[in-house]
């Protein structure tokens, strides 16, 4: 028996919104520790990894580890039937064919339940090394979203350069080129969540497809901060912490000169 209850049901809506344009089908693994998901996009250049700890749920029970093969677009359709203030409960048997979703309005006046058919999904599981990155940038997620959106109008590839002073995002295209530099905040600058912080061992410059960075920014509503982890010649990690429960991380392979 698997049962997981989230008082803030809208969180689940936001999570699926953050994944479904990148990944169509995925296995969500449920264990005593919580929910995890690892799925690549169709062209195998990026990967989305979701981690939700059991302690972040209001109620969590998982007697036996199970894997839920989900069509994320269909899950999104069902979650659209939940009100933004609804409590959402997920339920599945030990050898499930379906996932049951129950939505309860805050005053308990409306209770609905839906069953989503599960699928058998074969996936390639990538072993991601637990790497120490040369640069870790923490910045407001809204600012990152804006930069990616703005630069995508000009070109396809974004050059991200991280130095001690700041992070430079550069793009060039047929109409011209552009750069946005965000500088490290000084300690006195306002709110923690509005700050740009850079931890750096050595400067890093990498090229990435803006199209994919744009997919990742669908996770912006999940939190005020995004972290970018970069090392030379390895995929970037774009990590969105989800307050109190876990995180969504996106890995994107760099573009390389031929």
């Amino acid at each position: 028996m698997f049962e997981a209850r989230l008082t803030e049901g809208s969180l689940l809506k936001k999570i699926i919104e953050a994944i479904k344009d990148l990944v169509q089908e995925a296995n969500v693994d449920c264990s005593e520790e919580g929910l995890t998901m690892q799925a690549m996009d169709a062209s195998h250049v990026s990967l989305c990894s979701l981690n939700m700890r059991h302690g972040g749920f209001d109620h969590y029970r998982c007697d036996r580890s199970i894997s839920l093969g989900l069509n994320l677009a269909n899950l999104g359709k069902i979650l659209k039937c939940a009100g933004n203030d609804d409590v959402v409960t997920l339920k599945a048997e030990d050898e499930p064919d379906t996932l049951t979703l129950m939505f309860e309005s805050p005053n308990q006046e409306r209770i609905s339940d839906f069953e989503l058919k599960l699928m058998d999904i074969e996936t390639e599981h990538l072993g991601i090394p637990n790497e120490e990155y040369k640069c870790t940038i923490s910045m407001p997620s809204g600012e990152f979203q804006r930069i990616v959106r703005d630069l995508a109008v000009i070109g396809e590839t974004c050059i991200i350069t991280c130095t001690k002073e700041g992070v430079k995002f550069s793009v060039s295209g047929d109409l011209g080129n552009g750069n946005v530099t965000v500088r490290q905040s000084s300690a006195a600058d306002g709110d923690e969540k509005d700050q740009v912080k850079i931890q750096m061992e050595e400067p890093v410059t990498l090229n990435f497809a803006l199209r994919y960075l744009g997919f990742f920014t669908k996770a912006t509503p999940l939190g005020s901060t995004v972290k970018l982890h970069m090392s030379p010649d390895v995929p970037i990690v774009v990590e969105y912490p989800i307050d109190g429960i876990g995180s969504i991380s996106y890995f994107l392979a760099p573009k390389i000169d031929e």
Binding site: P235, F251, A253, K255, I256
Partner: peptide
């Protein structure tokens, strides 16, 4: 510029 694949960096398990 070539878009590299993730599997080139991470081993499959």
């Amino acid at each position: 510029m070539t878009q590299s694949k993730l599997s080139a960096f991470f081993r499959s398990s």
